[in-house]
Amino acid sequence: MLGQLFLSFVSIGALSFGGGLAALPLIQQQVVINHQWMSLTEFTNLISIAEMTPGPIAINSATFVGMRLNSFTGALIATLGCLIPSLLFVVFLGFIYFRYKELDWMKGILAGLRPAIVAMISSAGLSIFLLAIFGEAHDSFSIVSLIIFIAVFLILRLKKINPIILLLLSGGIQVVISSLM
């Protein structure tokens, strides 16, 4: 079963182009439908936990499924399986990049990619901004979040403060507010 666990997550790791959410249907296919290692309810719980904890969702799922099936060994094997394909791929691309980045055609490609990357980051940022201010269903409005957003943004623009400190402060403020209410 450990072999199967490994192979399942190798295929998830190899096919999940385009980041976390793209991997979810693949994980569901392997874990819930093909091998029935988890029920759909457990899988839904897994998604909410993966979202509530730091780290990529595919890696988190691998660790979680592995842990439930075969404790620590399972977690290790599933996580490694999930990592290996993307590592091979990124090392290969990285090798080409670091070797040929001074060539004109490579410079051209990279110059074309940069605006798209800025756009992708902006798009992810806007989604998180709207989620923070208007909630998941876009039906509420949080003035506290808006103030925190503006404050953190201004602090970061004006001063080089470690953003992690600001993240923790922002989380802490919400904890204080919700325990007062």
Binding site: F153, Q174, V175
Partner: peptide
């Protein structure tokens, strides 16, 4: 409390990304 903390991270995360963008 975990939920509140995670919710509290969101506006700061958005601001970090906005700064970089």
């Amino acid at each position: 409390l975990v939920k509140a903390f995670l919710r509290g991270l969101q506006p700061a995360v958005a601001a970090v990304i906005a700064d970089v963008v």
